[in-house]
Design a protein around this nucleic acid. Structure first.
Lengths: 356, 356
DNA sequence: TTGTACGCGTTATCAC
DNA sequence: GTGATAACGCGTACAA
């Protein structure tokens, strides 16, 4: 029971290795009878062509590498799904590497994908700029998804984070909220951290609302971060002076909601909470999450298609620049108009001027 | 700017290709001076050894294939994380294939992994039995995780689903519940469907409680399935006659909770709900989920280690049989003792005999 | 210690 | 239409 190769099949079917190869790649150039004979032998032997040898001989692997920050992030599957579909539509496979939110592992990821000679790379970790020189040497086209470069025109697909957060705050304001807190991403994160913070600031300025730094919390996008940030925002007073909170991720929004619950505050009756992402998760909780939706599927699809186009064009690097894809506000249950009493038998909201 | 290979480096550093290869694989067998020279050249040229050529030349790829049913399943990252760690501990990489809950894609997955000459395969889709003949021909060791074979001693790691559900029901009974409904997995699913149903039945019989088929709903483990199943369970009467519901997955439990919420019933005050899995998700909702925890991390780790052991031993198939890893009940908020009033300022539970 | 030559499994370029 | 033969990039006896 040894390894069955193209020449095993050749021997078995009484033809040359070259013919077996032809049956695999250009079946029309081999006589029907011979072809049938070879195919029969392949099945009989359970022959499976080696992708390694193929990739070595052809100069392409038909594989595209995907370098993600972390598989545990809830957004990943929603994005990856569309990438996978787009890749398969063009007959390519994906090689996934999980950087686990580590810079070192990100570099290892590039090395891994380069070693496996992928035809192109989809990158969706932030930040990207430190890896630009590395990418250049790779001699393989790279397209960015959910992230962007500040100083390089690499092709990228994402939402306009500044505008998205601006719109989130504007939405809350349109619902009567004027005291709005923010749970931001990390200040070091120039992609989804500072940008969304900036959007928050711009919105406040635009609507002439005061900016209070004590109403801004920070966290690493996870549930626990949202919980902790909310705790800190609350610590100033038992009754918060703000009426709404926007978080930079759905997970953090859920953490915030849980924190409020533990403090005896109800969402949205006592306080409105808004998320960011619109994960599948956002519809699975009570209350369901009002949030700004990132078009994960579209981002994945567009990015993959752009990468494939670059590959097919033989480009060694992309220069398409940033493509902002439209976000949208999804209204669900976690935000209530301010100053309007709820329809149920609940006590009217009264969370101003009591303590601070 | 052409492809830089082992002989490019050789030329650049004035040695033979063999020496470059040695620097890569047996650095100690090359003089320090030469080594430094070669390494310098490698860095200068940005040399990256081809994993394809390496895999072809050695007979192993140091890669292990992972065939999963669906990346979108919430349990996946929790399991994969530990697999990844175990694999890297032995210096191997993972090749992931997402079968997307399709039988056809599962076969494609085996073909894909075989083509890439992985040294072993971790399989965690159900069912497995249809693929056993295929696996045999692969000539590569396969270990099962989260699933098992009915008629083959392939090594497998999972929880004892019958006992786990038995314990879940026993727990509810210990909390005073005697009317317990079930949201089961699909009756066609012999791994996580019928087994857990069987555990439910055994528990009822053991505690001499009547089995009511109208208290059993079915679904495909997803949120929406849980919602729909709950609707059906509820349809008999406005006020359900049961006081607790166990679901075969956390997701379905959340769906059930949401359904109850939409019907104006509170969890756990009016009805207790218990999940199955203990996903990260289970701590992110309100109420948090009382559930039976699967040891995902341990399953992933043990399975991976077993596979690596088989690989190192040169085995072409595994015969370790099923290893049941211990589950445990995690008490959180979604289950309340029956007949005991809650501690808060909530109205006492009264969900019997009012309507039906 | 270092270099030469062959094999790994496949494709591609030739002749036949 | 089919069959030798030379790459593809690397590892490894074997010889030097």
């Amino acid at each position: 029971m040894e390894r069955v190769t193209i020449r095993t099949v050749a021997a078995e079917s009484g033809v040359s290795p070259a013919t077996v190869s032809r049956v695999l790649n250009r079946p029309e150039r081999v006589e029907a009878h011979t072809r049938a004979k070879v195919i029969a032998a392949m099945e009989r032997l359970g022959f499976q062509p080696s992708a390694l040898a193929q990739g070595l001989s052809r100069k392409v692997t038909q594989a595209i590498g995907v370098l993600v920050p972390g598989l545990v992030d809830f957004f990943f599957p929603e994005w990856y799904e569309s990438v996978s579909r787009a890749a398969e539509r063009s007959g390519r496979r994906l090689l996934l590497f999980d950087a686990k939110h580590s810079a070192q592992r990100t570099e290892e990821g590039f090395a891994f994908l380069a070693a496996h000679r992928v035809d192109g790379i989809l990158f969706c970790s932030r930040p990207i700029d430190p890896y630009l020189p590395l990418i250049r040497r790779l001699n393989v086209p790279v397209v960015l998804a959910l992230t962007q470069s500040a100083r390089d025109p690499v092709t990228a697909f994402k939402v306009d984070d500044v505008k998205a957060m601006f719109d989130a705050v504007a939405y809350l304001i349109s619902r009567g909220h004027e005291q709005i807190a923010l749970i931001s991403g990390p200040p070091q994160d120039s992609i989804a951290g500072t940008t969304r913070l900036q959007g928050y600031r711009q919105a406040l300025r635009h609507f002439r609302l005061p900016l209070r730094t004590e109403w801004i919390g920070y966290g690493g996008f996870r549930f626990e971060d949202g919980y902790r940030a909310m705790q800190e925002l609350l610590s100033a007073a038992v009754r918060p002076a703000f009426t709404a909170v926007v978080a930079a991720s759905d997970e953090m929004a859920l953490g915030a909601i849980r924190c409020l619950h533990d403090q005896g505050l109800r969402v949205p009756e006592d306080l409105s909470v808004m998320g960011f992402d619109d994960l599948r998760l956002a519809r699975m909780t009570t209350p369901t999450l009002t949030t700004v939706a990132q078009p994960f599927a579209e981002i994945g699809e567009r990015a993959t298609e752009a990468l494939i186009a670059a590959i097919d064009a033989g480009e060694k690097y992309t220069t398409g620049g940033i493509h902002y894809l439209p976000h949208r506000i999804v209204q669900r249950e976690s935000v209530l108009p301010q100053g309007v009493s709820t329809q149920g038998a609940l006590t009217p909201t009264a969370n101003e001027g009591s303590e601070s």
